[in-house]
Design a protein around this nucleic acid. Sequence first.
DNA 1: GCGCATTACTTGGCCGACCAAGGTAAAGTT
DNA 2: AACTTTACCTTGGTCGGCCAAGTAATGCGC
Lengths: 173, 173
Amino acid sequence: MKAEPACPEPPSAASGGPVSHAISRAARLHRIAAGRLLRDLGLYPGQEFVMMHLWDAGPVRQSELIKAVGLDPSTVTKMLQRLEQAGHVRRCPDPADRRAALVEATGASCGLKTQVEQAWRQLEETTLAGLDEHEREELLRLLGRVEGNLCPQAREEHEEAADAADAACVAEV
Amino acid sequence: MKAEPACPEPPSAASGGPVSHAISRAARLHRIAAGRLLRDLGLYPGQEFVMMHLWDAGPVRQSELIKAVGLDPSTVTKMLQRLEQAGHVRRCPDPADRRAALVEATGASCGLKTQVEQAWRQLEETTLAGLDEHEREELLRLLGRVEGNLCPQAREEHEEAADAADAACVAEV
DNA sequence: GCGCATTACTTGGCCGACCAAGGTAAAGTT
DNA sequence: AACTTTACCTTGGTCGGCCAAGTAATGCGC
């Protein structure tokens, strides 16, 4: 055995935001689990989203892909470079717009599609084991709300209310 | 305006696992939001967990810290190197065990504590805006279940049932 | 037609995070 | 006492992911 995620027990310091902590941790474990399943397929966690979109959208402009997965453009660029090098993806310049690039999944990646979907279903089931249909829907609904709360670009008003003096601090000998 | 996370609308391809998708996306947005708040404090997302533990646990062995945050040892090592260089953390060899290292937050980092807690509270509130107390508890409970499902080290039986032939695939001209 | 903003992507840099492999010191065995 | 295992940490490499800045082509106003 190696690192053993180990499920760091009830987080002593859930002090500030218990839900925030829970989100981070659950997501990390989820990503690791996804990574394990994907690894055997030759994909790295994160790439599934790109491939999935390409598989069921066909050739698309890179900009559209970026919008679809919601990642930073630079992230997608690098990911595509690696996916291309791995043979999962092909890119060619858009004849209609010379600054744009068209991206599509290669035929070779086709076989992966089924496997990735299978893995993804398995991950879903593992993740939600022991939850009934109602709970799953509720979780989905709540996560949707969270997503909605977090993404609105309008987050200008930072509301800096930093006033409280610093309390006693241990450490520092 | 720059990238604008943009909240990529109802994910066309939520096909396989809707909840898994929701977790990934919500977590990513959450992390970005955390990053924005933390950035002004001179911390990078992820480091908060380490600092929080150090603040309310005092000097600890690195191994204990690793167990507490549940990250890979190498991740913590590098993070500590950066935190040390930034002056947030101090490390010294454990006199009782020469292979171990003791870690503690520096006095300078003390002022940060309050601010981080404040930021973390704000993040929690932003994340959960519009959810009543019952919904928050429910979300926390469900995330806890997910965490439990995902972390059990016993994930030996991979259950490879890859049999279905690959379906039709578009792309590839 | 010319200049300027927009759009589309790339490059470089930095971090968190993983895995794999290594080195050293303590604990357990024989 | 010598050997083996285990624990603790580090190094190196690779990825996803962000930001900031840069390049190139398009479109718009004039």
